[in-house]
């Protein structure tokens, strides 16, 4: 039986990779993937706690997260493609349309 702490550590590690990736990668797709990583790390801890607490709530939320992530990916990728068609770049540094 794998103890709960291992799952949490795994989740934390994956989350940190996601954060670092999000902050350091310059490619929009990669940034996007990093967000997915973070979401999935959270899923891991949800499922782990769900099992540990013998409660179904965590798993329900995981499904929500997956659904949201799917929607987000679909829309996000669509936006990226639309953007790419107008400005042929997906480097995060060069995208600052919302600059105040």
């Amino acid at each position: 039986m794998v103890p709960l702490s291992w799952y949490i550590i795994l989740s934390a590690v994956v989350f940190s990779i996601g954060v670092i990736g999000f902050l350091t990668r310059r490619n929009l797709i990669m940034t996007f993937m990093s967000i997915e990583l973070m979401l999935n790390s959270v899923n891991i801890s949800f499922v782990a706690f769900s099992h540990y607490l013998q409660s179904m709530r965590g798993q329900i939320i995981v499904f929500f997260v997956i659904a949201v992530a799917a929607a987000e990916t679909a829309i996000g990728l669509a936006i990226i493609i639309a953007y790419y068609k107008n400005n042929p770049t997906i480097k995060v540094d060069e995208i600052n349309l919302l600059k105040g």
Partner: peptide, 18 residues
Amino acid sequence: KLRKIQTGLLSDYGLIMA
């Protein structure tokens, strides 16, 4: 003055969020 904070760069927002 305040709008200067909005750089429009994703990584900046990410950093601030973090």
